[in-house]
Structures are given as structure tokens and as C-alpha cells.
Amino acid sequence: MDAAQWDERYRASAGGVWASEPPAVVREIADTLRPGTAIDVATGDGRTALGLSARGWAVTGVDFSAEALGIAAARPGGDAVTWVRADVHAWEPVASADLVVSCYLHLHDNAAAIARVAGWVGVGGTLVVVGHDVENIAAGGHGPSDPAILYTPELLRGALDERFRIERCERVVRGTGDAELRGGHTHAAIDTLLHAVRVR
């Protein structure tokens, strides 16, 4: 989907598409870190950016949908986040960040896109990527059905270079209590998680 299609989806959503809380695994990792600066890539209607901001992070939320960003900015705490309308392929932050998070960004150049956003992490900072795994199709979980845009641990691991130490890169099962969509979903889902630290 392009930006116009996402704008239409958000316009039709009556208040937002995604759940109100960041994914549980993102909360778990972020809660082990000292809050600093964070970039939420493909922030959508803001659940991860707002969740991090509420935990003390200075957050920039980036998305190419103006409608999504409008919903995010209007939510409680939305005025504490810097919202940027931009494409991940073109935007560059003014400074590196202590934490870069990408949740459910699925593109035909996934590895290149993740490598690009990894470059936004400062030395000593953390990268967290979570998205639908290719095995999610057979599992019947919510998400894209095109395997060409889905993740595997091998794909995400291969997106990083020697500047990063990988803490975790694995498939994780996300239960119905950790819903991606507003209103929840009835099936467990299989995601790929990458958690890495930039060491140089």
C-alpha cells in the first residue's frame, strides 16, 4: 500500500487502526533501558511512539501517512512527540538516537530498509525490529499474505553489519492479549524479533 492508500484506511478507521499499546516485546526491551532519544519508524497512528513517550523517552514518530499522524498527534500525550511525515527511504534524522524501533514495517526491500534505519542508532544505542514472520501465513495470524514482504530471522540478522551485537533474533508467538489491531484479534500470530545493540 502506498501513502494515499494508507491515508484512506486511516480516514475510514474512526479513530485509529492499531492497538493502543506498543507490542509487548517492545515494552519489555524498552523498560530495561534508560530513557533517552527514540525514533519510531512507520509509527502509524502512534501507539509505540506514545507508549515510549509515556515512559520518559523523547520520541520522533515517522510515517508517510498524514492521516495517521493526525490521529497520533490528537491522542493524549501526542503533543509530547515530534511527528514527521516522511518516507523511510528518504528521511534522515538530524542526530542519531538511543533507541530506534520499527514495528510492522513491511516493504519489498525489507533488508535494505532495516539496514538504513539501523544507521540511525547511535553507538551504545538499541535497535528493535518486530514484524510478521513468513510462518504467520500458515499460522492464520493477522497480517500480509505476501511472503515477499514478510520477515525471517535470517533476513533481519543479515540486514546488520559488524557495528551491531545481536541480542535476540528469533521467531516469537504473539498471543491474542498482545493484539496488533484496535479491537484485538482472535488468532495468535508469529512475528520475527530483532534486538541489537550498536557497539561501534
Rank of each mutant, 00 (worst) to 15 (best):
E167F: 05
E28M: 10
L181Y: 14
R34I: 13
Y10V: 01
P93N: 08
V101Q: 00
A138K: 12
D133K: 00
A115I: 03
L194H: 04
P144H: 10
G122H: 07
T176S: 02
G140F: 10
V26E: 01
A4D: 14
V172A: 09
A38N: 05
T82P: 03
V100M: 03
E67D: 14
L107R: 15
Y104S: 09
F164M: 12
V128G: 02
D133C: 10
L33C: 08
T43Y: 00
C169A: 11
I39S: 01
I114H: 06
R200N: 13
V134F: 03
G158Q: 05
W18K: 01
A138P: 04
P147M: 13
H89D: 14
D109W: 13
R198T: 05
D45L: 13
D31E: 15
A111I: 13
I39V: 15
A72Y: 03
V94T: 15
A115Q: 06
S20K: 12
L155T: 09
L50Y: 02
D146P: 05
A86D: 11
A113P: 00
A58Y: 05
L181E: 08
I29A: 10
A42R: 00
A72Q: 03
W18V: 00
L107H: 07
L155K: 12
G15F: 09
G124V: 09
D7I: 06
T192S: 12
W6S: 03
P144M: 08
W18H: 10
G122F: 06
V62H: 04
Q5G: 15
